[in-house]
Design a binder for these strands. Structure first.
Lengths: 165, 165
DNA sequence: TATATCCTGGATAAATATTATCCGCGATAG
DNA sequence: CTATCGCGGATAATATTTATCCAGGATATA
């Protein structure tokens, strides 16, 4: 079980979108070029991010993407969910209902009305991850990165994206 | 991102192995038949469980599997790890090192000596899930199931596995 | 108006992972 | 000696992930 690379791509891209001025956007072309990844592939992930209301787009020449919400309102979990989809990590096949000693036509309440305990545990476990990732916002990430990477590189990045202004 | 069905199969099977008497084993054939799943496929997962020291096997006629540890020493996480492998869910491609403004030959410390923050967050998130699943043992599961499913079904199950004794 | 740019969505393909089966080997109980 | 059972390798079917290409529509700019 692995997260799609789209999660990594998206988070890095969104980080660059935090600091763009209000009326500006950044195009897929630039985002892809800056990070040395495929343009056409990256665009697929931005379609998902848009669908989930994380980014919004301006079509046409000089168009591009910008955040659709404030950075503090976008969490890591939002991004994971947008890219990976809404299904939970663990899909329960209800194998308990196949137990050979049970009558398929007349299953006991314990395995129809009540949820599968194994399933519940796995959902809870996913919930722990969700809880943690919901607590990490894009704003937090941006501030942390600013400290660790240094303002020099941050400004150089901003300047690169602004180079054709 | 989805867990392999092997995680579900394994947990259900291990649950049946909790209650077998000390010197007995249960074969793949029975485990598969009881749950109505493929025998040859299930055996692949038991190979992994054995490799990780969760079960042990007795070869030859009347052979089969039994737990290699006490049920309280086997956690959900142990099973997930055995089936899914030791790699973390999030693999970092270090896209930050590809940033076009950086000199590949002379990368700054901030992106070589220090871990990628996005990577760290995702590892922490996985850690939350791990922590929760490490706290849920097979013994706990067995006790909970006993309450919810009822002793009737538990004993019927035991009787079915013991039917050829 | 013409043109270059950029998002959008569909079609498609390559690569990889998951799910699943089969078979022959060696071990062992009876 | 034989039927049974775990073990491991080879193989195949299916699904998912990764990746590309292109035509269409929107828009800024000249």
């Amino acid at each position: 079980m692995q997260f799609s690379v789209g999660v990594e791509y998206s988070l890095h891209c969104l980080l660059y979108l935090v600091d763009v001025s209000d009326n500006r956007t950044i195009g897929i072309k630039d985002l892809a070029a800056y990070q040395g990844v495929s343009e056409s592939y990256l665009s697929k992930f931005f379609a998902k991010l848009k669908k989930e209301g994380i980014v919004e787009s301006i079509p046409g020449a000089k168009g591009g993407y910008r955040l659709a919400k404030l950075p503090e309102e976008i969490s890591f979990w939002d991004v994971v969910r947008a890219i990976e989809g809404p299904e939970s990590f663990f899909k329960c096949c209800e194998v308990r209902q196949n137990a050979i000693i049970l009558d398929t036509e007349n299953l006991p309440d314990s395995c129809t009305k009540y949820p599968c305990l194994i399933h519940s545990v796995m959902l809870e476990a996913e919930g722990k991850m969700k809880e943690y990732l919901t607590g990490k916002s894009l704003k937090w990430l941006s501030e942390e990165v600013e400290v660790k990477v240094g303002q020099d590189q941050m400004e150089a990045t901003k300047a690169w994206f602004d180079r054709n202004l």
